[in-house]
């Protein structure tokens, strides 16, 4: 199989990897960059587990060809915390029980992050709409809402943390 050298810009780091052009971003992240926080839950782009941010926009890495995104800034779950300091969303998912088995968690946190970057005070209805492409099989979503709302509250009360949003 022909491999090509491609560039990926992930979590602020530039990588150059040799992969076949048919490789998805999901596979490249997991296999070549060993960023395994991005999960594969289905084969038909229906579950949302593989969500990453591409220039701040949530997308499914399982339908993205890695070689198609040399110029994009990609954020995976590994790039959400600031060093040891968890993002308010990550903290919310710990404190409010949004992560049970944890498999959908990275995708939902990233989707929620993009939402809060655009709309810091979403209603529960807006949250439900925004994460409606990310399936969870454990929680019934109630504690996921609570987790995201924890972050909303925290971001509102600590303006410094809010400034770290964006891409």
């Amino acid at each position: 199989m022909n491999k090509e050298s491609i560039q990926l810009h992930v979590n602020g780091v530039r990588h150059e990897i040799e992969i076949p052009p048919s490789k998805t971003l999901l596979e490249a992240l997991r296999e070549d960059l060993r960023l395994t926080g991005t999960k594969c839950g289905c084969d038909d782009s229906s579950c949302g587990c593989c969500t990453v941010l591409v220039d701040g926009v949530p997308m499914l890495s399982c339908v993205m060809l890695a070689a198609s995104y040399p110029d994009a800034s990609i954020t995976t779950i590994e790039g959400v915390a600031q060093g040891e300091q968890l993002d308010p969303l990550q903290e919310g998912f710990c404190v409010e029980g949004g992560a049970q088995c944890g498999f959908c968690t990275p995708g939902i946190i990233l989707t929620a992050k993009a939402l809060l970057d655009r709309n810091p005070k979403p209603t529960r209805e807006e949250i439900a709409q925004a994460i409606s492409g990310n399936l969870c099989r454990c929680t019934g979503y109630t504690q996921i809402y609570a987790s995201i709302e924890y972050a909303i509250k925290k971001l509102r009360t600590t303006p410094v943390a809010a400034a770290s949003g964006g891409r």
Partner: peptide, 16 residues
């Protein structure tokens, strides 16, 4: 109480 494995699940560090 937060789950003891919550942190690794929210950071992507947890290993499946």
């Amino acid at each position: 109480l937060p789950m003891v494995d919550a942190r690794e699940k929210v950071t992507g560090a947890g290993v499946y």
